[in-house]
Every structure is written in C-alpha cells, then in structure tokens.
Amino acid sequence: MSTMHDVAQRAGVSLKTVSRVVNGEPNVSEQTRQKVDAAIAELDFRPNSVARNLRTGRIDLVGLALPHLSQPYFSSLAEEIMREAERLGLTVLIELTEGDAEAELALVREHGPHLGGLLMYPVGLSDAQALTVARTVPTVFISERAYDAPVDRVAMANREGVRALVGHMVSLGYTRIAALGADHTGRPERAAAHLRLEGYRDGLRDAGLPYLPDLVLEVGTPHWNRQEGATGMRRLIQAGTPFDAVVAFADALALGALHALQEAGVRVPAEVAVAGFDDTDDARYAHPSLTSIAPGRAQIAREALALLNDRMNGTVERESGRLVVADHQLTVRESTLGGTAAWGGA
C-alpha cells in the first residue's frame, strides 16, 4: 500500500506539499498539483479517511504543527509521523508556525474545529495557552518544555543523551570537552538547550572533570544551524583555549563545527573529536561521519500518535496529563575515534 511519503518521493516534492494537495488547500501551483496528482495515480494512493469518517463519526484528520522544516530533525520527525499516521489510517495536515505563539494559537483557531487531533511542537506557548490549545482540540505536545498544565507530552532524553556523549568522550581519553549550543537566558522555550547543558554538567561530574565556562559556547536554540555552529567554533579557536573534543547540542551545530575545524587545519578526530545530537542523515554521510545521539524519532512518532488516539477516542480523563520520554541511543562513528591529543591553537 502506497503512502503519502511515497507520493512525495515520486513527485519530488515535500510531505507538506502532498498534504496540501490531498487536503485541497490553496497556495500550491497548478504545475506542482499536477505532479502530485500524477504520482498519486501512478502509485494508486488512496486516502481513505473520508469514508471512515462518515461511517464512524470520528474525524481522522490530524494536524502536525512544527516550527519549520529547515532543520533536519524536524523534517525527519515529520516523515516518521507521516509513516505512523499512514499505518493507523490517519491523514496528516502539516502546518509551520515559525515558533511564534500567535501563529500557534491562530492555527488552532483556524483549523481546530476541522481536526480530529493535533500534534504540536510548541515554542512560544505559555502554560495557560498550552492548556487552551489542549481544551480546544485533542492535543499531544512534542516538547522538551514541561508545562504547568495537565497536557500530554512526548519528549527526548535530552539530559541523558548529552550525558552519554560526554561519557563516551571521557572513555576515549578526552578531558577538555567543549559544549556547543548552550543557552543561559532561562527562557522556557529554550528548555532543550537547558536540559542538554545539564547533561553536559552531569557527564563532567561523573568523570570528576571541572566545568570550565571558557569551553561552553552559547547559541540560542532557534539558531541551532550549521552557520551558528561554525561561528561558535571559530570563536573558540580564535580564543586559543585548549580543547580536545566538542559535544554539540545538535547535528547541525556539529557539522558547522566540523567545517570550521577543517577550515583551520585541525584534524578530526586526530586532534579534536566532535559529536552531535539528532542522528540525522547528514551525520551519517559527513566526512568524517559524525558520532551522534539518536533521539528515537520513530518512537516519538508512535507514542505521540498513541496518546493522541486515546484523546481522540475519549478514553482518558480530560484534565489528566501524561509524559513519555523516548529512548536514546549513542551511535559511534569516525568523528570521535582515532585521537586524544588536545589542540591548543598552535
């Protein structure tokens, strides 16, 4: 049975574009719509939610609200959710919010009455706003932030994952381990950065290593991209502070760091080891390939849709809140294997 993911690949478009065409939304060019329609016909793709809705009275259209798809983590997560939704017979409508609270709330106001349920990666919502969303439409948040409200949430093992990365570095003999991606603003929407910094501290503490502020590079969560990773790494190199390893809080940051190190003539991993978080496809095919934490995207998709299905079926108490933390896995690759000599800028 063909899936929406298969249609996207055949038509050479994004999952969001296929979602728009299938759901009859505007803002799709006629040429693109024809390509998608042709792929649907070739693959004999048949969304079957309409007939089921008429039979059961349940709306099987699920919204997926993400800040953006430009970061590999979000695009990969969207693919996993689409696959799992297809398996469950659900149709997914993807919407982008740019991490803006008003956009997140506007999405609920506009689409909420037409949705059977909503999966949202919220960035700007307050505790009260999150509760309002959950009371408007059955909702599961995919979020690192803990809300002071009875809402369902699926999260990554942020702290535990980075702790494992530091432990891996220490086991290989690295002792001056930089952290790339920290945030000290205390803003709740940057919970992932705060948790990963705590994991970094935990790993150092486990190994009896000191926390050295000069090795902690601040990057605001919205800017976890390659450019910010490269900029942060150049800053550390120019400071002349000796370091022998880098734990980046996202693969995109790590890939930027790799670029800056290679640009400076620093050999990875012979002089500096590098690791990331997310285990994206880019991590697998980087040169050298990147050690990373796999945050369990497939499990996140399964658990989030299972929780949402309960909400849509009315089998859980309205004012209850549930939390699922996905398993993580350390995937070791070339970027951390092969050298333990500290590099001091010489």
Rank of each mutant, 00 (worst) to 15 (best):
T3S: 12
T3N: 03
G12A: 02
V13T: 03
S14L: 11
K16E: 09
Q31K: 15
K35E: 01
D44K: 13
F45N: 10
R46H: 14
S49H: 15
A51N: 07
R52H: 07
R58H: 13
R58K: 15
A65S: 03
L66P: 14
P67L: 02
E79K: 14
E80Y: 12
E80L: 11
I81K: 10
M82H: 15
M82G: 08
E84T: 15
A85K: 08
E86P: 08
T97Y: 07
E98D: 15
A101F: 02
E102A: 06
E102M: 10
E104C: 02
L107W: 09
P113R: 13
P113T: 10
L115D: 09
G116P: 00
G116R: 01
L119N: 14
L125S: 06
S126L: 01
Q129H: 11
A134V: 01
V137T: 15
P138L: 04
V140N: 00
Y147G: 07
V151Y: 07
M156Y: 14
R163F: 09
A164E: 11
M169I: 10
Y174M: 14
T185F: 08
E189R: 05
R196T: 01
R196S: 04
G199H: 06
D206M: 05
D214M: 10
V216K: 06
L217M: 10
G220A: 15
G220P: 14
W224D: 10
R226D: 13
R226Q: 15
Q227E: 14
G229V: 00
A230S: 14
T231C: 01
R235D: 04
L236T: 02
I237M: 01
I237E: 05
A239Y: 05
T241A: 07
D244N: 06
V246E: 07
V247S: 04
A252G: 08
A254L: 05
L255H: 05
H259Q: 09
H259P: 02
A260V: 06
L261Q: 05
L261W: 06
E263Y: 02
G265I: 02
V268C: 07
P269Y: 08
E271H: 07
V274F: 03
V274E: 06
A283I: 04
Y285F: 15
I293W: 01
R302K: 09
E303K: 14
D310G: 12
R311A: 11
T315V: 15
E317M: 12
R322T: 08
R322C: 03
V324M: 13
V325G: 08
D327Q: 12
H328L: 11
T331R: 15
V332P: 10
V332S: 10
R333H: 08
T336K: 06
G338W: 07
G338D: 05
G339L: 02
A342R: 10
A346F: 00
